[in-house]
Design a protein around this nucleic acid. Structure first.
Lengths: 213, 213
DNA sequence: ATGCACCCTGACCATTCGGTCAAGAATTTT
DNA sequence: AAAATTCTTGACCGAATGGTCAGGGTGCAT
């Protein structure tokens, strides 16, 4: 009787249609942003009628909300795994690689996040200030301990993480620009980017014998 | 008689109002994107009536177009100056600094650009493939010559430029996130970022004696 | 001060958008 | 197979949005 509030997918059809809708919504929202997207666009993308969309979700905002929730989980996961093996430099470079792979494999999620942040993060500000900040601070302490032990070069952990986020996500969010300037195929772009970023962060992190220039 | 097509500012009032409108539009467009912004919002931001806005501009798209035109010029300018002095490493680091200052001083322009690219650059794709690609390719040849001369470490010039763009613009486009994680004041944020990025690119660019890991 | 070009706006229009609803179609349960 | 539940949609609604226009106000040169 009661309509499926959000992801309440119990029946076979419910599961199929909700994922179908969410996939279409991700496509649309990640391209046009929340206010720039319409339910009709999502419906067309999903191959469903508008009322049918609204049968499964309580409204445009509800769909967007579900996408953001899932996104935050996916987005934080790689960072949580940082620091589970031994070599700090390899550890951080592995994180860079993982983030770059996510830009390659989940560009829509990256753009959805970028759109949300660009507009001032009206829906996820609390998550940024809470869970994201906590996790980031924790990993920064870990990085700082590596610095104190002399295992990596001294640098600002927070800004290091910002550099990792920005350089890797750039290949998803600014893909059109990268494509326009580079003109290479997708695999080529990401392969050369991988080599470059690995070199970048490795040369930055590896401690030098002499600290002077 | 004929209405001012775009920036046709001849009269005193025309000049004043058009800049007033463009400033308001920049504020709104950079926050909500093109499709997410309304003329009413721009009017309210500018302190003018909606018909008054449309008296000076031929429509929502025309305003957006003027902003994008000006933006592209402003945006390419720093890159054009790359390579006018001697020391390559200092030269590139100066470019990084300049770009970071632009993120600090013109965050709205940066976000406007990000919004446009995120949505697939529907209005400036030609500019990206033309002028931007030409200028970038030219500067990449310059960087390559520095590499060949052994003045900077060997790396992919295109990806180097992408890294510069992404790391610097991050502080404008993702400001909310940076603020949430860092919690520092604006000047603090940009000062520490400046130190960090200078260190990052300097350590990356400075050639090492031994090329091995 | 008066004529003229420039400037401004309330009222209005067509379209689009988010969302509803009743009634019919499909599916599952019994 | 019939009943019960779930699914689907055409038609519709009120609000918002981009844009128009006639008419009145304002500034300025002569």
């Amino acid at each position: 009787m009661a309509r499926a509030a959000s992801t309440k997918g119990n029946t076979r059809i419910q599961r199929q249609k909700t994922t179908q809708i969410l996939d279409a919504a991700l496509e649309v929202f990640s391209t046009y942003g929340f206010r720039g997207s319409t339910i009709d666009q999502i419906a067309a993308q999903a191959g469903l009628s508008k009322p049918n969309i609204l049968y499964y979700f309580d409204g445009k905002e509800a769909i967007h909300g579900v996408l953001l929730d899932r996104l935050l989980h996916t987005w934080l996961e790689p960072l949580e795994h940082l620091g589970e093996s031994e070599n700090p430099v390899d550890e951080i470079c592995a994180y860079v690689t993982r983030k770059l792979e996510m830009s390659r494999d989940y560009p829509r999620e990256s753009r959805l996040f970028a759109n949300e942040i660009l507009q001032g993060a009206p829906n996820i500000l609390a998550e940024l200030q809470g869970p994201l900040k906590s996790l980031t601070d924790e990993k920064c302490r870990l990085i700082q301990s590596w610095i104190d032990a002399g295992e990596i070069a001294p640098l600002d952990p927070h800004h290091l993480i910002f550099s990792i986020w920005s350089t890797t996500q750039h290949y998803a969010d600014f893909d059109v620009q990268v494509k326009a300037v580079l003109g290479a195929s997708t695999t080529d772009r990401f392969e050369t980017a991988q080599t470059h970023l690995d070199h970048l962060f490795r040369s930055m992190l590896t401690p030098r014998r002499t600290d002077g220039i």
